[in-house]
Amino acid sequence: MKKKNVFIIAGIAFALGYLLKQTQNEKQRIKPEKALKSVKDRLEKQFNVSGSWIYMKAEPFRKNGFEYEAYHGGITKHTDGKYIPYEFYIDAYSGTVIDMFPQHKEQMNTAL
């Protein structure tokens, strides 16, 4: 086999490997710890966050007619001497917050 053919085959194999890796990376979930840190970092810019949690397993979640695989978590903000717990759902692939709401119904009027 000529050197030229070897280089062409190696180049094609490298390109295929690269494309397969990119495809695989796009389909991988982010780690739940990273998702939780993302939510905490965003909220800590506005509020004092005093606690947080997240389920380690993604679950199906439906919002506005769309299906997601999402992590379910919670965060507690401390404001005006009160601890207010919120729950959230975050897309397991993109890390986008899909929904966030107060944990208790009497706090539904409390804006984030």
Rank of each mutant, 00 (worst) to 15 (best):
L43K: 07
I9D: 13
V49H: 02
T76W: 10
F47T: 03
L20C: 11
D41F: 11
V39S: 11
T96A: 10
H78I: 05
Y55W: 12
F7G: 13
K3A: 12
F88V: 11
D80A: 11
I75Y: 07
P85K: 09
D99Q: 02
M1Q: 13
E67S: 11
Y55T: 03
P60I: 00
M1E: 14
N48M: 12
D41S: 15
Y83E: 14
E44G: 06
H104Y: 14
W53F: 15
M108Y: 12
Y93C: 00
L20Y: 03
Y68A: 11
P32N: 04
E87Y: 02
Q22A: 11
N25K: 09
F47P: 11
K21I: 07
M108A: 15
E44A: 10
N109F: 03
D91A: 01
F101C: 00
T110Q: 12
L43F: 14
I54T: 07
Y89I: 00
A111E: 12
V6L: 15
S38T: 02
G74S: 09
G65F: 07
T76P: 01
D41I: 04
Q103I: 01
D91G: 05
K2Y: 14
K37D: 15
Q46F: 14
H72A: 08
S52M: 08
G11A: 05
N109T: 05
D99F: 03
G95L: 07
T110G: 00
Q46W: 05
M108S: 13
L112H: 06
P85V: 01
P32I: 00
F66Y: 10
G74P: 06
Y55N: 15
K77A: 08
A35S: 15
E69C: 00
N5E: 15
T23W: 02
I9S: 11
Q28R: 10
G65Q: 09
G73P: 03
I84D: 10
E87H: 01
A58T: 04
R29F: 14
L16E: 03
K57M: 13
H78W: 03
R42P: 01
M1T: 13
A10V: 12
Y83W: 01
I9P: 13
K40W: 02
G81F: 01
F61M: 02
K82F: 12
I90H: 06
V39L: 04
F66N: 09
Q103M: 14
K45P: 05
S50L: 07
R42L: 05
K105V: 13
I30T: 02
A70D: 04
L43V: 06
Q107I: 00
G65L: 11
V97D: 09
G51R: 00
Y55L: 14
G95M: 06
E67M: 08
P85G: 06
T110D: 11
